[in-house]
Design a protein around this nucleic acid. Structure first.
Length: 552
RNA sequence: UGCCUGAUGGUGUAACGGUAGCACAACUGUUUUUGGUGCAGUUUGUCUUGGUUCGAAUCCAGGUCAGGCAACCA
């Protein structure tokens, strides 16, 4: 049985280009502006660009689109590089648009010399007004008719810092009545005295996106320049620049950006969440950032798998967050070490257990036959989950209750004999008796029970802190919800549990290890965790059909 | 009332004139020393109106709806 993998529309274009000999090999690029942290939407683009190069044989450049010094910073450059590498990709070259500033400047001179660019003294408002509207053509101004010599002189003076910020701009001379607003004499250069994170104060004029991106692609000989849908109207301008300057014919293609339920993807909104302390930082585990997901315990494999599954197309989309969670669970199920942690404990006393304590063994991962076992101490007094006992059990309840039997995972079958309550009526202690012949691995009891509970020996337990995360927002389509997006922040997106007891093995496990805390979910040690106080982040819950059943 | 995109189950994504498939979600059943995992199965779809054709999700025409475009942002 052969699985036919269908190509997405970009792959089809590339396959065709290669087949026709248009290119011997392909070169793509991932071009973030270093003004924020990468998020899962960027991961889609990263997987696309690097993935294309992988499947068709070729490479991918990492290029920082750093043409606006006001918002950019090396902090972001570093985080972006770390995130791309963590996702598992290697770039051919690390490039910066700012490396091309000299070249871009000479391109501008060329356009002026061809009569295709002019210096405009109008201010921003005037230019906007003169551009017209989508239905009303723009009108020119006197500056448009300046001579080539005058434009050359003025542009040189702009570069030399003879004018105030905003006093003049360089514009392309294209078509003020174009139905495409981007072709109505777009700005090429603006005067901006700001410290650039790489070029410092060497420049006081900076190229606009439309005079940097396509040109950078061409300089690097990018064959396929892939961006998101909102750049479609820029494409004629992209092509105009390449044609007029007679550069390498890079081609732009557009796909739909990623949207996900219960979260936001815009940099502006993410920045706001950080600045207004709705989350602790860019790498807060609730954030849809790569760094947040890494800290939460998502694996690069699962994110790549997710990006593979969502596909590439041109229609707007909103992907269920549960698909990402499915990918994370699927991977973690295979690799995570199993451990037992009781999060909301009550005492379980095995009344007929007189051995003091013993060492039992439990498999590290039932999915992995070679995963080995770990030692788990068992004793007379244990901690079990509070909701694993019910005073008056309902019909389908498979756990502990008066007279009911369950298995303690990797240990014995027990039978509940009695329980104690405090003055407030809360269950404090459950008494049970165990069946010595029901020991895991050598069970001769012939008993059969439906429920299996996780547990921790009270005398051997170590305290751990758990951060349990839920969705950041309470509505599916946050971006399209009525009013301020911050009104929909889920107030219960983080629950910190300080009452949890863990089995001692956890103390000696490596910090980077992935865990499944049995019946609770997948967990990953937080960056704040120390040997004195272990702190774990819940990556994702286990699928819980019992919780679902109860809601009915 | 301009230009540009797009429209296939709840959500994504295939089918390139010839059986509407796959995944997630939801729901059954089954297995299970995790109410996890695995396995088996069920439910749900081509925006609309015409046209071309033996045959249309696919081609053509009109309509409807959704999104984008008028930053000295990218």
């Amino acid at each position: 049985m052969s699985e036919e993998k269908s190509l997405n529309f970009i792959e089809e274009i590339i396959a065709k280009d290669l087949a026709e000999g248009k290119h011997a090999s392909i070169l793509t690029r991932f071009p973030p502006e270093p003004n924020g942290y990468l998020h899962i939407g960027h991961a889609k683009s990263i997987c696309l660009n690097f993935g294309l190069a992988n499947t068709f044989g070729g490479g991918t450049n990492l290029r920082f689109d750093d043409t606006n010094p006001v918002t950019e910073d090396t902090e972001y450059v570093e985080s972006i590089k770390a995130d791309v590498q963590w996702l598992g990709f290697n770039w051919v070259k690390e490039c910066y648009a700012s490396d091309y500033f000299d070249q871009l400047y000479s391109f501008a001179i060329q356009l002026i010399e061809k009569g295709l660019a002019y210096v405009d003294d109008s201010n921003a408002e005037e230019i906007a007004a003169q551009k017209g509207t989508p239905t009303v053509p723009g009108t020119g101004n006197a500056f448009r008719d300046r001579s080539i010599a005058e434009n050359l002189e003025l542009f040189t003076a702009m570069k030399e810092g003879k004018y105030e910020d905003g006093a003049k701009v360089l514009r392309a001379k294209i078509d003020l009545s174009s139905p495409n607003m981007h072709m109505r004499d777009p700005l090429l250069y603006r005067i901006k005295r700001a410290h650039h994170h790489r070029t410092g104060d060497a420049w006081c004029i900076y190229p606009m996106y439309d005079f940097a991106h396509g040109q950078s692609d061409a300089i690097e000989n990018i064959t396929h320049s892939i961006c998101t849908l909102e750049f479609i109207p820029h494409r004629p301008l992209y092509e105009w620049g390449i044609e007029q300057l007679q550069l390498f014919p890079s081609k732009q293609y557009e796909f739909a950006r990623l949207n996900m339920t219960y979260t936001v993807m815009s940099k502006r909104k993410l920045l706001q969440l950080v600045n207004e302390a709705h989350v602790s930082s860019w790498d807060d585990p609730r954030m849809p950032t790569i760094s947040g997901m890494r800290r939460r315990g998502y694996t690069p494999e699962s994110i790549r798998d997710f990006c593979e599954r969502i596909g590439i197309a041109k229609r707007e989309n909103i992907i269920d967050f549960s698909l990402l969670e499915f990918c994370v669970r699927e991977h973690l199920n295979k690799i995570a070490q199993r451990r037992m942690v009781v999060t909301d404990p009550i005492k379980l006393v095995i009344t007929n257990y007189d051995k003091g304590s013993e060492i039992l063994h439990s498999e590290n991962n039932p999915e992995d036959p070679n995963g080995g076992v770990r030692e788990v101490p068992f004793s007379k007094e244990l901690w079990i989950q509070k909701d694993d006992f019910m005073e008056e059990p309902t019909k389908k309840y498979f756990r502990l209750g008066p007279g009911l039997m369950v298995r303690l995972k990797s240990a014995y079958i027990i039978k509940c004999d009695s329980f104690e309550k405090d003055a407030a009526g809360n269950i404090t202690t459950v008494h049970a008796s165990y069946f010595p012949e029901s020991k895991s691995g050598s069970d001769t009891s012939g008993l059969h029970v439906k429920g299996t509970l996780h547990w921790v020996s009270a005398a051997h337990a170590i305290p751990v802190v758990l951060n349990e995360y839920d969705r950041l927002f309470s509505v599916e389509d946050v971006a399209n919800a009525e009013g301020d997006f911050k009104d929909y922040i889920n107030p219960h997106s983080l629950t910190t549990i300080t009452t949890a007891w863990a089995e001692p093995a956890l103390e000696n496990d490596p910090k980077q290890a992935r865990f499944q805390f049995l019946r609770k979910g997948y967990f990953y040690q937080d960056v704040t965790s120390t040997s004195n106080q272990l702190v774990f982040n819940r990556t994702v819950t286990l699928k819980d059909t019992w919780a679902k059943e109860q809601k009915k």
